[in-house]
Design a protein around this nucleic acid. Structure first.
Lengths: 205, 205
DNA sequence: AGAAGAAACGACCGGTCGTGCTATTGTGCG
DNA sequence: CGCACAATAGCACGACCGGTCGTTTCTTCT
């Protein structure tokens, strides 16, 4: 990797961390430059506009999410185990990573729901993909006979996302000690009513 | 009401509308002043700092929410009807009001989850209140015999909030035609499994 | 080693930000 | 009517914004 690509990557990494705190729009080039110990103009030269930087940061976040959440789940067997892995990965993504509890995508959803442009377009695409990934996993669980045949997979994805979003608010903003427990309880209930009526009783944890 | 109070109110109203679009932090005094046709300094004189204005705006949003969502629900009889009214009011609040589909509080939750200060403090209080209001309504439904005796009311509130947040994303960012249907389906399922086992079968809509 | 090009720098642009300070206008009461 | 004071405007400030430019320093390749 050339020198340029290397620092460029450092910039994007640091920008992702900063943007997780203040938002992608409020992230300023000057502040970012100081953080990576570059001059503002030196940094700017890597991207030809702030928007290009923002897009790069979002792309990086998507890559990280796929790497940390989606790929590991795909290693699990189809059906309920994979669904569980997606949920657990999602939870870990929201609560963990660096610093505590800011899911980049949920934050951006608010920041860009009213702000047209390529950043929003990419965000929309990534969130649609996430819904589709969840729905596909649920459909596979139906095919495997784990979930009811008449399960609405998209509805399943919707409710799972809701559990995650409420978790983030409870965990980060409201600093609730039982946030994780609440999320898991909600997920267990969601899975329980998605199972085949004739499936074996829910396992205890 | 004196002249000062009147324009002050107009300012806050307009500020709430603008902040719903760009966020409370990115709302600028200059832009706001132009919107209410005042000079920047003339507007500024009403509040002695931007933070004071932000607090005022948030207070106004809380008042509106109570007035439009909570109070009407309290007019309904205790138990399931009130719970349903709270949910429907919440949904209407998120999707409706002026412009389409930005819940001020959900947006602020993201904006301030990392930004300490009095605005965040007030936001936290308001969101805790909302959870408590929902939980209290659920507990009353237990007392009325509509919901199971062993229902976890806080868990119920958590899941209802999650349904609302996912609804907002689907409705506003992803512009999904079935967003409202998804939310209602999720809510019906939540209510159904909260009911007493010996209660009559769920009504069809 | 040396040349070509990539990478980083510092100064600077026009604008906007929040916030003071002072003057002017408008309102409402005796 | 006229006075006191509230309300608004005008102007200036220092800081920071995204972005441009010409120049210098460092890589990279022959």
């Amino acid at each position: 990797m050339s020198k340029g690509e290397e620092t460029r990557r450092e910039i994007v990494d640091r920008a992702l961390a900063l943007a997780s705190e203040v938002g992608l729009e409020s992230l300023s080039l000057g502040n970012l430059a100081a953080n990576v110990k570059l001059s503002k103009s030196g940094l700017f030269a890597h991207f030809r506009s702030k928007e290009a930087l923002q897009l790069e940061v979002l792309r990086r976040a998507v890559d990280l999410f796929i790497e940390e959440v989606v790929i590991p789940a795909l290693a699990k067997p189809r059906g309920e185990p994979r669904v569980v892995a997606l949920f657990e990965g999602y939870l870990a993504w929201i609560s963990g990573r660096e610093r505590k509890g800011t899911c980049f995508f949920i934050a951006l959803s608010q920041e860009y729901d009213d702000r047209p442009g390529p950043v929003r377009d990419l965000l929309v695409k990534s969130q649609r993909d996430w819904h589709h990934t969840l729905a596909r996993a649920a459909r596979l669980a139906v095919e495997q006979g784990h979930f009811r045949a008449d399960l609405d997979a998209e509805q399943f994805a919707y409710e799972l996302v809701g559990i995650g979003m409420a978790f983030q608010q409870l965990y980060k903003l409201l600093d609730h000690p039982k946030a994780e427990q609440r999320a898991r309880t909600a997920f267990r209930a969601l899975v329980a009513r998605s199972r085949r009526a004739d499936a074996e009783a829910p396992r205890r944890h």
